[in-house]
C-alpha cells in the first residue's frame, strides 16, 4: 500500500466512524419523531389538490417549483450532451 493510500485510509476511517455513529443516533427505524409537516400534507392533499396520489400532489402542487427545477435539470443535461457531442467546425 502506497503512502498516499495509507494516509487516505486514516482519514477515510475517521469519517466512517463519525458517520456510523450518526446512523446510530438517528430516530429508530420506522418511528419518526417529528411528523407535523407530512401529516399536514396527508390530511389536506386530497381536498386541496384533488389528487388521490399524495406523492403526485406533493410533486406537482406543494413542491411544484422543485419539479420545474428537475425538468430544467433534464433540459440542461440534454443541452449539455448536445453541446459536448456537437460538430466543432461550423
Amino acid at each position: 500500500m502506497s503512502k498516499r493510500n495509507l494516509f487516505a485510509l486514516i482519514f477515510f476511517v475517521i469519517m466512517a466512524v463519525f458517520l456510523f455513529i450518526s446512523s446510530l443516533m438517528m430516530h429508530p427505524f420506522g418511528n419518526p419523531e417529528e411528523t407535523n409537516m407530512d401529516d399536514e400534507i396527508i390530511e389536506n392533499a386530497q381536498i386541496e389538490t384533488g389528487a388521490n396520489n399524495g406523492v403526485t400532489a406533493v410533486v406537482f402542487d406543494y413542491r411544484g417549483f422543485d419539479t420545474l427545477g428537475e425538468a430544467t435539470i433534464l433540459f440542461t443535461a440534454v443541452a449539455g450532451v448536445m453541446i459536448i457531442f456537437r460538430r466543432m467546425n461550423k
Binding site: R63, F65, D66, G69, E70, T72, I73, T76, A77, A79, G80, I83, I84, R86, M88
Partner: peptide, 28 residues
Amino acid sequence: FNFFVFLEITSIASCALIAFWTNKGKAV
C-alpha cells in the same frame, strides 16, 4: 431542498459550458 436543486442546475450548466471547446482535451 430547492437550494440543492438549483445548486445542481448551476453545476450541470457550468460543466457543459466549461467543456464548450471540446476539441481541447484539457477543457474536457
